[in-house]
Design a protein around this nucleic acid. Structure first.
Lengths: 185, 185
DNA sequence: GCTCGGAGTGAGTGATCAATCACTCATTTC
DNA sequence: GAAATGAGTGATTGATCACTCACTCCGAGC
């Protein structure tokens, strides 16, 4: 329970706790995760979490921001690695990178959990801020049409649904309709 | 607190309680809603809820099933009312009916909440069952291609995101990209 | 050596909530 | 008219959890 090093100041530890919160909130959601869970993952005491963040909601928002940081970074890498640097080619590269990124479900899950508690104003604002970043980045980096970017986002949401509902474990025809062409979810 | 009529047997009351649960769970989600909330909405005692359903999770699943009942009914009406009975025309009619249906956010919200607790096996199974119904119905009724049906579902999910995140209250360009052509969400 | 401030904690507390149980009351059945 | 059945409730309980507060420890400056 003692920190591995005492060199870290509170300012440096905060993002580490946010990362721990991301992992924990992703698993069981906002209401299903306790401050004690996050504290355990971050190797600090529950009490100290409240010294670093004013409350559970602010902690969730920080985790959500960390999630979108990772998403943007992955999209950027995917765009750079796209063999075909046309708008659609770049969006395709981003989609591939995103599909790989959500292999561990953490980044996907917290977005879905955030969607379910947007009635908390700070969470709604945090989600919109993240969407703004992703949408704007996709548009600017790909230079695609609005319709291309919208489609990119729509199929991303379908991908979320497929993974959260476990559709890929289903063999009946309806599942094939949903998953066709969606990369290894 | 006394029921308006004593004529109702438990078998008849169960769907009424499921409808009340749909309304309540839609507002604050599974963990954010108490059995007492549902009981109040259904005008019965909390204890009696447990006589009608084995537990909170089963109650949620019943509410989710009721949600998909309403969704399918609305899609069917929309398909029948479509002026153009081609595959794309029928899917378009369904999309319009769905957009209208989720005006009150109840049916949309509980689907999003369900997505966030699919780690509860019964909820995951219930969500897949509902998706199977919707996807199969869209395919069979429209007779569209798999790609048409997949697009119908993907843009439905985008619609969920737009409404839950409150994107329609946003005026910056990224919001326009997401909402363009999505009917009155 | 001493003090001062920030890092970090242990031990609570008040509130909430799912689930249980023993019951009352009405209706039906024989 | 007695017994059985099922609808419906009030009171309670055991557990959980967000949040608080008084405290300790340790390094830096003097």
């Amino acid at each position: 329970m003692t920190p591995s090093t005492t060199l870290s100041t509170a300012e440096l530890r905060r993002p580490l706790v946010a990362a721990a919160a991301l992992s924990e909130f992703a698993r069981e959601g906002f209401h299903g995760t306790t401050i004690a869970d996050v504290a355990r993952e971050a190797h600090i005491s529950p009490a100290y979490v409240f010294k670093l963040f004013p409350g559970k909601e602010a902690l969730f928002v920080a985790a959500l921001e960390a999630c979108f940081d990772e998403v943007i970074a992955a999209l950027s890498r995917g765009a750079d690695a796209a063999p075909n640097q046309t708008p659609v080619g770049v969006l395709d590269g981003m989609a591939g990178a995103y599909a790989q990124l959500i292999g561990d479900r953490r980044l996907l899950s917290i977005q879905v959990h955030a969607q379910s508690i947007t009635h908390i104003p700070e969470v709604g604002a945090g989600l919109r801020a993240g969407l703004a970043r992703v949408t704007s980045f996709a548009k600017d980096r790909s230079n695609g049409s609005d319709a291309d970017v919208q489609r990119f986002m729509a199929y991303g949401q379908l991908c979320h649904l497929i993974v959260t509902a476990g559709v890929e474990g289903e063999t009946r025809p309806w599942a094939g309709i949903l998953t066709h062409g969606i990369r290894h979810p």
